[in-house]
Design a protein around this nucleic acid. Structure first.
Length: 104
DNA sequence: AACCTGACTTCGG
DNA sequence: TCCGAAGCCAGGT
């Protein structure tokens, strides 16, 4: 595991309930704007070990990126429980519910 | 070392 | 706004 991955893990662990972040944003904050796809890998492999709130990470347009139907609905359910609201197209308003470490 | 894969992002039609 | 293709990064085989 390299510094980039470690950084991503730390960032994800900092996402508070009721807020979400995108893969691209996390990658950029971790120091690699092009490493969005790496974030997905990190979530899949490090979630178990680091107890990461993976459900608070969504696609660039506030859209859940999970292809698996079960996982998709699970994430939507978990987010709903934290107060995240979805529009008619199951998308999240990043302007209002997106999270950034520097702006609170 | 080379090739494949993915819970992404961005551009073009 | 929606869909398909291309680009990118790092891990796995």
């Amino acid at each position: 595991m390299n510094a980039f991955t470690t950084q991503i893990v730390q960032l994800i662990k900092q996402i508070p309930p009721g807020k979400v972040c995108t893969y691209g944003t996390l990658a950029a904050l971790a120091g690699n704007p092009r490493g969005a796809r790496q974030v997905s890998w990190t979530l899949r492999t490090q979630t178990e070990k680091e107890q990461l709130p993976w459900h608070r990470v969504v696609g660039g347009q506030g859209k859940i990126s999970i292809i698996d139907s079960d996982g998709y609905q699970l994430q939507k359910g978990l987010l709903s429980q934290e107060g995240i609201l979805f529009d008619d197209h199951d998308r999240i308003d990043l302007k209002k519910q997106g999270w950034l470490p520097t702006s609170h």
